[in-house]
Structure formats: C-alpha cells, structure tokens
Amino acid sequence: MVTRAEAALAERRGDLSIKGSENGQKALAPAPSDLRMQDQTVGATTIMEPMIEIRKLSLKYGEKLALQDISLDIPKHQVTAFIGPSGCGKSTLLRCLNRLNDLIDGVQIGGTIRIGGIDINDLDLEITELRKRVGMVFQKSNPFPKTIYENAAYGPRIQGIQSRAALDEIVEKSLRQAALWDEVHDRLHESALSLSGGQQQRLCIARAIAVEPDVLLMDEPCSALDPIATAKIEELIAKLKKQYTIVMVTHNMQQAARVSDYTAFLYLGTLVEYDLTKQIFVNPSKKQTEDYITGRFG
C-alpha cells in the first residue's frame, strides 16, 4: 500500500545523506562511537539506544534563565513525558528539540543536543532538514485553513513531492496512522476547520507524521480536548511509538502515567528527576517529585 510514497520519501532522504557524507558533513546516520558521549544513567537503568541526547543544555530569554544545565537521554521508540508546574521550562525544552525557539528574538542556547547522533545546533545543518526529521504537534490544534487533504499533504509538498498518486498514498497512510481515515475519507476536500477539536488534533498528528519523521514532539496535545477525544489521542500515541520516538509535554499527571514509558520532572528550569515512569510514580527518589506527583504543590 505504501510503496510509492515510501519510495518517494526514501529517495529524498537518500539524496540527502549521500550529499551530506560527500561533503563530510552531518549525514543523518548514526554517529561514530567515539563521538558518543558517555552513557547517561537514568535512575537504576541505563538507556542503551538513545535517540536524543541532551547535554548541559541551558537557555536564556534575554536575561532570564529558562533552562539550566539539563542532561538527559531519550530512548528510541518510547514515549517520554515532561512534567512539571507551569513555567518550569518543559515546553521550552521541547521546542529546543526542533529549534523552534530560534524564532524568538534574544534567545541564547548553550550545551549540545544530538538527535540520531547529529548535533542539531550545528551551523552547517539546515534547520529545515532538522524539522523534517522532528515533527511537532501543538497544544492548540492548528490545522491550516485548507482542505483536509491539503493539510496532510503539506509536508510532503514542501519536500517537493508533486506526483498526485504519491501524495494520495501519503495522505491515506498518514490519516490511517492517525486513526482519522475512517471518519474523513469521504470528505477529504472539505475545509479542515469543519472538523471537531479532537479530529483537528488528530489531523495535526497526521500532518506531522506524513513526512515520516524520526521524532514526534507533542506539546500538551490533549489540553484543549474533552475526555473522549483525549482517550483517542492517547490510544494513538501508544500505537505510534512503535514507529516514532515520542516526546510529550503534559500537565496531566494521570496522562503521563498512562501513556509514557519515561518521565522527566522539571522544576524552575532544572531537571529534578528522570526515570522510568513506573519508578517515578511508584517510588520517586526525590522529595520534590513526590510532592508534585501527589499534588502537594504545583
């Protein structure tokens, strides 16, 4: 079912890595082992195959320090949740992963982030290439004011895929993956804004996975949805993690417990604790984490 679309995408990616390696630059392939930084231990477990490695990350908005010395490894094909009170920097941290913070004037970033072994703050790396590898779903569903079809096809079109057949395939595949196909397949050419809130958010997910990224960032994807729509999205996340590395920010403790495999607790711009979700919710090692999870503050 996906042959042509996959071929089209794979071809583009292939071009890219060949070009990259020829120039001796960052091919989007695993880094040589000597470049690997020392393994980060997470609580009792060690993450063997980290997709994202964050080292000594700090971020300043003008004079204000928003993130401070954060180091963590995010495992491949798992769901990692960032929790913490409002303003603790979890969204900022998430937006560092696809460099969306670059849009804001006066942001200074220190430390390194590697995704798939590649330093994303490398000046030689095209920011658009990074963002094609790292998709994002936002807090407020923000479909484009176009048709459902055009929304899903936007990313592939940007990558230069023009063949109608290939686009059709990509659109169907991503809508199926986002569990939206059955609801919208007969009205693909209606405005995306005619969908319900939950459907819109799933369309945004479909739009993000249409370009087949490696990592999917989700910034409170359910905060504007009702419980039924939330349940659908959570189900979807559980399915999607087989193919994508998912990093999500959530305010909802239960959601983090239900959906994620790993949880990081941030407070005032610092990483307080990072561990398996089970561990964090059952037996947190820090007093602060326990207080927050049990609702004593925050």
């Binding site: 994002m136 407020k140 923000n142 484009f144 990313g155 993000a208």
Partner: peptide, 14 residues
Amino acid sequence: PGGMREASLALGAT
C-alpha cells in the same frame, strides 16, 4: 494565529 506559522515551520517549511 502564530500557531499557523509555527506549524508550517515545524514541518520543515522555510
């Protein structure tokens, strides 16, 4: 809405 622009940029658009 700013989200519209961010969504497009996040998909790798210039």
